[in-house]
């Protein structure tokens, strides 16, 4: 009897544990949704501090060019190699340029740039805003009649949403170039033919879908950085946890959003 009760109660403990996790998840999702809602309501309501937006665009965009360019180059190069090897088995190696440009513009350009920026920008935003939170600088903003959302969150989100597509456009070009280098230098493609095949095949829609994805990724990156920073607690450890949380959650959300957008854009 008592053994039965023990089993029963331990079962309930499992349910209680699952319940707690689910509740915490739902509460977190709700807080994030409210945060995003407030942020968007401030984006559509003037004033917007354009000078801060420009400053953030410089920090997010310009200083990320080297890292995004390098990753795009190697991604294009390795994509070209693998497709050549795979295509070779079916005698389809002539399609390498077309598949490289499709893969880069539709998926890898935006996703690789998005993930690199999640590591670089989300983390930096979370650390900066998190430190401002724990040293009461965000409270100080409020007492100086300055809305922290307008001053901190909106400039970062607007800058990321505008800047990410530009970065991805650069990443697309460099990625295709990486494929071109490998194709012509080690796989024996004719340079003019490679470029010709690439340009004739790719459509404006392929590039456009990648750039729209990039904008959404920019929103996710800045939002998760700001949200995690805003809700960081304690001292140095809390800021560290917020930074980790920003990068991990931004990366997962980027991959999930990427799947949803791909299935939406190319459903027909």
């Amino acid at each position: 009897m008592s053994a039965n009760e023990n089993i029963l109660s331990s079962n309930w403990n499992i349910f209680a544990a699952i319940g707690r996790v689910v509740l915490a998840f739902l509460a977190g999702t709700g807080r994030l949704a409210v945060f995003a809602g407030i942020a968007i309501s401030h984006i559509v309501r003037p004033p917007i501090y354009w000078q801060l937006v420009l400053h953030q665009m410089l920090r997010i965009g310009y200083f990320s060019l080297p890292v995004v360019g390098l990753t795009a180059f190697f991604t294009g190069a390795v994509l070209c190699l693998q497709i050549y090897i795979g295509g070779n088995r079916y005698g389809a190696e002539a399609f390498v340029p077309q598949i490289v440009v499709l893969g880069i513009t539709r998926e890898l350009g935006p996703v690789i740039a998005g993930l690199m920026m999640a590591g670089r920008v989300s983390a930096a935003i979370a650390a900066e805003i998190g430190t401002m939170r724990v040293t009461e600088q965000i409270d100080a903003l409020t007492t100086l009649a300055t809305n922290p959302f307008k001053y901190l969150v909106v400039p970062r989100i607007v800058a990321a949403v505008v800047t990410l597509p530009i970065l991805v456009a650069v990443a697309d070009s460099i990625g295709v170039f990486g494929g071109y280098i490998v194709g012509t230098r080690s796989l024996g493609f004719n340079g003019a033919v490679y470029i010709n095949n690439t340009m004739n095949f790719v459509t404006a829609g392929d590039v456009r879908s990648g750039l729209i994805k990039a904008s959404v990724f920019g929103f996710i990156i800045a939002l998760m950085g700001c949200y995690s920073g805003f809700h960081s607690k304690g001292g140095a450890q809390g800021v560290g946890a917020a930074t980790t949380q920003a990068v991990v959650s931004a990366s997962i959300l980027i991959l999930a959003a990427n799947y949803l957008m791909t299935s939406f854009f190319f459903s027909e």
Binding site: E136, A140, T143, T146
Partner: peptide, 26 residues
């Protein structure tokens, strides 16, 4: 006006910009 425990000065701004913050932004 509030004086915070740790000062809560904005470390990205200079001293005078900190003092003038409420005047310029607010």
């Amino acid at each position: 006006g509030m004086l915070f425990q740790g000062g809560a000065l904005f470390d990205s701004l200079s001293i005078w910009e900190n003092v003038a913050f409420g005047l310029i932004q607010g």
